[in-house]
Simulated assay, not measured.
Amino acid sequence: MWFETGSSPKVVMNEGNYGSTGWVGHTNRPCSYGVYTPPSTTQFNQYYMNGQPAGYKKEVMVHELGHALGLNYVHSTACASMAIMEGSSTMRPAPG
């Protein structure tokens, strides 16, 4: 988790076996009236992550951390986001 001194968490990261959801990683970054309202919550689905190479897991984690920090996909117009990330590999099952 990421905290600022004397505050509540800004990013919360969890992992668990969420089952056959269709996503490997998922980030929820709440937004109200155009303003980010922490914390961002990131989940990693062990159902798909288990048995995958370390490089794949790192790619998913870095990708989701980018979303938690406010980066979005190029085509997105989401709340207060800087759209510089491409692809959606974390929203489909892991290879293999």
Rank of each mutant, 00 (worst) to 15 (best):
M1S: 13
W2K: 10
W2A: 15
W2E: 09
F3K: 07
F3N: 09
E4S: 10
E4T: 13
E4A: 14
T5C: 02
S7R: 09
S7M: 05
S8L: 10
K10S: 11
K10A: 13
V11N: 14
V11R: 14
M13R: 15
M13E: 13
N14E: 13
N14Y: 12
E15K: 03
G16I: 03
Y18Q: 00
G19Q: 01
G19T: 00
T21D: 00
G22H: 00
G22C: 01
G22S: 01
W23M: 05
W23R: 07
V24C: 10
V24Q: 08
V24A: 09
H26E: 05
T27V: 02
R29H: 10
P30Y: 06
C31G: 03
C31R: 03
Y33P: 00
V35E: 07
Y36F: 12
Y36D: 04
T37K: 08
P39K: 04
T42E: 01
Q43I: 11
F44T: 00
F44V: 03
F44Q: 01
F44H: 03
N45G: 01
N45A: 05
Q46G: 02
Q46F: 02
Y47I: 00
Y47R: 01
N50V: 09
G51K: 03
G51C: 03
G51H: 02
P53Q: 07
G55Q: 02
Y56K: 11
K57D: 15
K57M: 15
K58G: 10
E59V: 04
E59G: 08
M61K: 14
M61G: 07
M61W: 09
V62S: 15
V62N: 12
H63Y: 15
H63S: 12
H63E: 14
E64Q: 11
H67A: 01
H67P: 01
H67N: 01
A68L: 05
N72S: 14
Y73I: 01
V74I: 12
H75Y: 15
S76M: 14
T77P: 03
A83V: 06
I84D: 13
M85T: 10
M85A: 10
M85Y: 12
E86W: 06
T90V: 08
T90G: 06
R92A: 10
A94E: 04
A94M: 05
A94P: 05
P95G: 15
P95Y: 12
G96F: 06
